[in-house]
Write a protein that binds this DNA or RNA. Structure first.
Lengths: 240, 240
DNA sequence: TCTGGGTGTTGAACATGTTCAAATAATGGC
DNA sequence: GCCATTATTTGAACATGTTCAACACCCAGA
């Protein structure tokens, strides 16, 4: 048989060849159309090798998802350290950096939303299995709000609310047909601007009962307190 | 070969046998675990027969989805006609009737959310293919608001906003582990109550700029105006 | 240099969604 | 009643995700 594959020193090299081939094919054709056999072929390995490194096709998406989260954290922290930004600018940084990272990866992002309605699934964006990723993302919003003097209820709830809004924005992003998804970027900006204005308003004691009503509602729903079950960790590969 | 199947007069009978078997199995084990072979076997037909009546497994879910929509419309209209309800009671009716219909069908509902992130997919809840179903649902919220004197911007946007909130509630419903999903029902009630109180507040001219800001935002995002492409109709079977 | 165990790698085999050509039943025209 | 046409039904065949037993390679220790 013709030896088409390049010599490879380490298994980690094989792994990233498979990952790279998988991501490239998924970006190009979407998750469905990128078959494991194609991925293996493009990576220059046999089908079984792909399953040696990744327990399933979804696991590859999971690795991508985690990598996006890490990259986002890095970029946001870098942005916050390099300049002294006000709240609006910080929020803009968090949103736009995320969109930049995901730019060109809409087909991959699509795959992530697939398990939204399946609480048990390891890739459910709201499920226990993605908790650590989610917490990291929420922490960025908490960081963006850190400088603000806020009543306690707002300080606790707003990061989660912002995270939820950011998820909705990603959904919009998937449906956005405008060139380069410029509409999504504009929506983010105007949304943030509105949010900041409303935050000023929400601080007024006059509105306390309403604000309190909303936050009490969300708290009662359990949306502000994830069960802290540290046992629930996804077994997964090292990100490349 | 043993003739296990009952005599059947019409093909429509075969069809509903397949549909019934499919829904029963999906309710019991979820969409994944209910294989087409099992469905066919339970319906007393060969595998191919299932595909004669339904172009795909998803198509069965689609039929279910449409049936839920129709049933919801019927029940809501009946409720509105049988009694003179105020806004809050009407909204409660819309929400709780939906939850009642879906009660016990969470595994089926799960399947519906699967394509949320795939605009092109015929089952995407936000996609063009489900537009008619969505419009029917939005119309119910418009109906619930019909008696209210509202500024024009609110009258146009609120039904869509309520529909979106109702979708979020369904998502919560899927994650709700409380017995009989009582938490979801409570969340609906307190959410509606808060909504009605906020509506009163939103009418104040004082808040016009903020209200206007939010609605302008959503309008700019194109969320209030679906492209009216009547050509985009899902080819589908008659609901049973 | 040989050996053994661990690490990588392979492709056949399996389950399941889907397609399709062929077989069978129903129906209508004569 | 008989034939042609259509509607229904069948199960084999195919593609793809996944599993797994077997094989190849590497290298420490003798």
């Amino acid at each position: 048989m013709f030896n088409t594959q390049i010599a490879r020193k380490h298994s980690s090299e094989t792994r990233s060849q498979i990952l790279d081939a998988a991501l490239a094919l998924c970006r190009e054709r979407g998750l469905e159309a990128a078959t494991m056999r194609d991925i293996a072929k493009h990576a220059g390995v046999a089908l079984g090798a792909a399953y040696y490194y990744f327990p399933s096709k979804e696991a590859i998406v999971q690795v991508y998802y985690d990598a996006v989260g890490d990259e986002h954290s890095l970029r946001v922290q870098a942005a916050f350290q390099s300049a002294n930004l006000d709240l609006e600018a910080r929020l803009r940084a968090v949103f736009h950096l995320k969109l930049e990272i995901l730019h060109g990866d809409r087909r991959l992002l699509s795959a992530l939303f697939r398990y939204t309605g399946e609480p048990e699934h390891p890739l459910s964006v709201f499920g226990p299995a993605t908790r650590s990723n989610r917490q990291k993302s929420i922490a960025l919003f908490r960081l963006a709000l850190a400088g603000e003097k806020l009543p306690e209820d707002l300080a606790g709830g707003l990061p989660i609310l912002l995270w939820a809004l950011h998820m909705l924005l990603l959904l919009y992003f998937l449906y956005d047909d405008s060139p380069e998804q410029s509409r999504t970027h504009r929506l983010a900006d105007s949304g943030i601007s509105l949010f900041v204005r409303m935050l000023t308003l929400a601080r007024l004691p006059l509105l306390k009962p309403f604000r309190g009503g909303l936050f009490a509602l969300l708290r009662d729903a359990g949306l502000f307190s994830e069960p802290t079950s540290p046992a629930y960790v996804v077994p997964q590969e090292e990100p490349s």
